[in-house]
Write a protein that binds this DNA or RNA. Sequence first.
DNA 1: GATGAATGAGAATTCATTCAT
DNA 2: AATGAATGAATTCTCATTCAT
Lengths: 196, 196, 196, 196
Amino acid sequence: MANFSKRQQEIINTAIELIAEKGIQQLTIKNLSKRIGIAESAIYRHFTSKLDILLGILSLFRESKDQMNRELTSMQTTPTEKLKQMLLRRFAYFSTNRAIASVIFSEELFRNDRRLSEQIYEIMLANQQVIIDIIKSGQKIGEFRNDVSAQQIAFMVTGALRLIVTHWRLSEFKIDLIEEGEKLWETVKTLITVED
Amino acid sequence: MANFSKRQQEIINTAIELIAEKGIQQLTIKNLSKRIGIAESAIYRHFTSKLDILLGILSLFRESKDQMNRELTSMQTTPTEKLKQMLLRRFAYFSTNRAIASVIFSEELFRNDRRLSEQIYEIMLANQQVIIDIIKSGQKIGEFRNDVSAQQIAFMVTGALRLIVTHWRLSEFKIDLIEEGEKLWETVKTLITVED
Amino acid sequence: MANFSKRQQEIINTAIELIAEKGIQQLTIKNLSKRIGIAESAIYRHFTSKLDILLGILSLFRESKDQMNRELTSMQTTPTEKLKQMLLRRFAYFSTNRAIASVIFSEELFRNDRRLSEQIYEIMLANQQVIIDIIKSGQKIGEFRNDVSAQQIAFMVTGALRLIVTHWRLSEFKIDLIEEGEKLWETVKTLITVED
Amino acid sequence: MANFSKRQQEIINTAIELIAEKGIQQLTIKNLSKRIGIAESAIYRHFTSKLDILLGILSLFRESKDQMNRELTSMQTTPTEKLKQMLLRRFAYFSTNRAIASVIFSEELFRNDRRLSEQIYEIMLANQQVIIDIIKSGQKIGEFRNDVSAQQIAFMVTGALRLIVTHWRLSEFKIDLIEEGEKLWETVKTLITVED
DNA sequence: GATGAATGAGAATTCATTCAT
DNA sequence: AATGAATGAATTCTCATTCAT
């Protein structure tokens, strides 16, 4: 969010909140400005259009993704530990950032415009690539089983993550997300690590 | 679709198409009627409101889910074969029903109304329960490994299915979905079946 | 209603009912046909347009007015008795014909079309003329005081009648209309008859 | 109208005009905005809904009623003079405020909504109560005859007022309303004042 | 930076009416 | 007589955006 002013950040965060709470159809300039407490027209001082706000949301997502990847890369541990960290951190992140969790997996929201849908796909692919890379390195050094493709495992791990978050959201956050994350990690570990 | 008239079925299917192609924001009565080739007001002979059309879509989803479950239940085979069939058939179904594939995993689309969001969650839960049940019965007779919970495996399998379909859609259907389904099944089989 | 078929009479009466209950804005072909229990298009077998139905209502009003005048004319009594009869009968009629009472004094309802507004004015004038004539004849033979104009008395009597019926309607028929009619007559008698 | 902005007052007055000229069915946002010379959507900056505009009209009526009552209350004269003033002023007011005259007695116009119909009834009752009070005080000091109830006289006076205004309106304002008011007052005076 | 007023395009829905059956 | 399907015009209201202050 370095590139965004205070007000811009406020607008982006409020927009995410609004989408999370009421869906994209309720993300209107009117609702947005009302919640922030400024006039509708004031929004246009900070973003030239509504599309720009959505692009802002995506840039926030990308930043958070880059941040996590940088952290993982700098970690000097085994692939198993890396995968564990990555999973648990993402569950932890979502559990304290409900609004983002409600929006980040909803590719539907960004279908209005080519630029939006391309960017969200790009973020999604990048996120998956991180997992694939970790798994591949684990396979190379014999920590993870080699008889299944890293790509497929990545589908299963990311897919489960996304699905659990969706359940959590649809259940109106009644599920304990942290606990679910730990259960998922145990399962993944059991299924793919090689015991010696 | 037994309960729906010809025209109602046409409206429901066209609505799914429209959402699939252009997103829910483009599902307007105008676009709908234009594509069907009737006047906007004619739609209201067949559905009392737009909400009613969305409920119609969900009732179609539920019917298709019930149909698949009935088929699976009546199959006299092993859990392994059942799980395989279920997975491959769903991939096959989606690959020939692109529009439905684009809509059925988009819980976001049905957030306008309580009735809608509750129903889509219900369908989602029911679909997952089928997988859980198959896995449990496989675990009971020793076909599937017992050291991981059926629930977690179901998350991974369904999650992967959903994620692959999403990729397929965002890639504008360039991926070969059938092939992807087979790859996923191979992976799942390798990971969870017990070799003797 | 001699000129109207059974079905036409049913439509006219139902239209009056609808207006009485929910106001003219709720008098739609849809509501009308629904209440009668036929299809919307069936209405057009019996009336060529909605305007025609409104004209039918007015023709019913006119008939009822003519009927009352004929009765009054044929009565062989004093003007005092005639005025009393006219007043009490109208109150009695309205109290058992709530729907008509709710509509007949609402000139507003018939402003869509010249023909309608002219006819309702005509009926109104004719109704008043009857009272004026009775009062004049009473003045001529010395039963009613002569120091006020018949026209003005007619305004006061008819005005009170209309206003009381309006009150009755707005109070949701909680007032006893018959009793109110008697009170009004007593007052009118006290004010305008000449004691000897 | 203190609580309303300039534009809001303009909208309310134009709405009254429109109803007066063409009936409530022609009071549409389109007609309203066209006559004012702004876009349809601009109306919604000033009133949140059409119902709100109608409530605005009623609040204007109430204010005008309160104003008149305040004037009457502060007058230091006999009940006879008060009743005369009240009558003549109302006729004068209507004769220069044709639009309001065309709307204020049309309870039918406000039947769309409970709030509307309750308010118009309330205004009507309040208006009548003023007359009843004047008459009662006149009876107490012997200026008005005591053998008829104040309530009944009020019905007759108010009823006549309303009926004369209705005639004036239906005759397309050809009658001289001021003159009619004077005639009515003469009649009322003759009928109810006690000569000594 | 912010506001209030305004705009034009469109949204869902309703209505009277028509027509083939 | 009656129906079901359709139509086009109109209605209320929303939305993103602009502009003068």
